Computed example of a mutant assay.
Amino acid sequence: MAHLILASSSPRRRELLLQLGLTFEVFSPEIDESILPDENAEQYVARLAQAKAYAVLQRFPNATVIAADTTVSVDGEIIGKPQSKAHAFAIWQKLSGRCHDVLTGVCVANAVNALHRVVQTQVEFQQLAPHDMENYWATGEPVGKAGAYAIQGQAAQYIPRILGSYTNVVGLPLHETIELLKAIDALN
């Protein structure tokens, strides 16, 4: 396989790829992550993953790049990362006692080809009491996480079930990522 670069500064994505025994470098591009008018969650994560991949390819044209972007969506609304404690509480009130979707756009690209897909997982959150929110916020774990939670951390206690890929909720659907890597290798 060609020189592999993960286009992400996410330690969770790095750890997931390391689980697979892949050798890769990390380079996190700076891109505008603003939501475009009338853009839904699927379009949003697909666009950002592709933008990250192309930004890294401009700098490393001989590499194969894995790029991803993850977001949470409820009732068609894209739920980003919390900007404050109050914002995290507002997010949890939307997620509390119901299901939401976690979507990750994955793009695997090289100088010749780019393949991408969006993976969706449904996550059920239990009803959160104010003391649950206070305790979880105090851990520091929600900061910088889409939907203000980390399923691989203490938030797991609030999630009775998921439907779909667990690694997608962590930030990188491994099965689909490997399938894209195999497919792009087959095209070369």
Results as ranks from 00 to 15, higher is better:
Asp132Met: 04
Gln127Leu: 12
Leu115Tyr: 00
Val123Tyr: 09
Val118Trp: 11
Ala114Lys: 10
Leu128Lys: 07
His131Asn: 08
Gln127Cys: 05
Val123Asp: 12
Leu115Trp: 00
Leu128Ser: 08
Thr121Gln: 07
Thr121Tyr: 06
Thr121Pro: 04
Val123Ala: 13
Gln120Leu: 09
Ala114Ile: 02
Thr121Leu: 10
Val112Ala: 05
Asn135Lys: 13
Val119Met: 05
Gln127Asp: 05
Gly105Ala: 03
Cys107Val: 03
His116Ser: 15
Val118Asp: 05
Ala109Asn: 06
Asp132Tyr: 03
Trp137Met: 07
Glu134Pro: 01
Phe125His: 14
Pro130Gly: 07
Trp137Leu: 06
Gln120Lys: 15
Val108Ser: 03
Cys107Thr: 12
Thr139Pro: 08
Tyr136Phe: 13
Cys107Gln: 03
Gln126Phe: 01
Val112Pro: 00
Ala109Lys: 07
Glu134Gln: 14
Arg117Asn: 09
Leu128Phe: 09
Glu134Tyr: 11
Cys107Leu: 02
Phe125Asn: 14
Gln122Trp: 07
Ala138Val: 03
Cys107Arg: 00
Asp132Leu: 04
Gln120Ala: 12
Val106Arg: 02
Val106Phe: 04
Val118Leu: 08
Ala114Glu: 11
Ala129Gln: 13
Pro130Leu: 03
Gln127Met: 09
Gly105Gln: 05
Val112Cys: 00
Val106Glu: 03
Val112Ile: 02
His131Pro: 03
Phe125Leu: 15
Val119Ser: 06
Arg117Glu: 13
Ala114Cys: 11
Glu124Ala: 15
Gln126Lys: 15
Val118Gly: 04
Met133Phe: 06
Val112Gln: 10
Trp137Phe: 06
Phe125Lys: 10
Pro130Tyr: 05
Thr139Tyr: 08
Thr139Arg: 10
Ala138Tyr: 02
Leu115Thr: 00
Asn113Gly: 00
Gln120Ser: 14
Thr121Val: 10
His131Ser: 12
Gln120Trp: 01
Arg117Val: 01
Gln126Thr: 14
Gln126Val: 13
Val118Tyr: 11
Thr139Ser: 14
Pro130Asn: 04
Glu134Leu: 12
Cys107Phe: 01
Val112Leu: 04
Val118Ile: 11
Ala114Leu: 09
Pro130Ser: 06
Ala138Asn: 14
Glu134Met: 10
His116Ala: 12
Gln127Tyr: 07
Asn110Asp: 14
Val123Thr: 12
Val119His: 02
His131Gln: 12
His116Arg: 09
Val112His: 10
His116Gln: 14
Ala129Tyr: 10
Gln126Tyr: 01
Ala111Leu: 02
His116Cys: 09
Ala114Met: 09
Gln126Asp: 14
Asn110Val: 00
Asp132Val: 04
Met133Glu: 13
Val106Gly: 04
His116Val: 00
Gly105Thr: 04
Gln120Ile: 14
Val106Cys: 03
Leu128Ala: 08
Asp132Ser: 05
Trp137Ile: 07
Val112Glu: 03
Thr121Cys: 07
Gln122Val: 13
Gln126Met: 15
His116Met: 11
Gln127Ala: 13
Cys107His: 02
His131Met: 06
Phe125Trp: 15
Ala129Ser: 08
Phe125Ser: 12
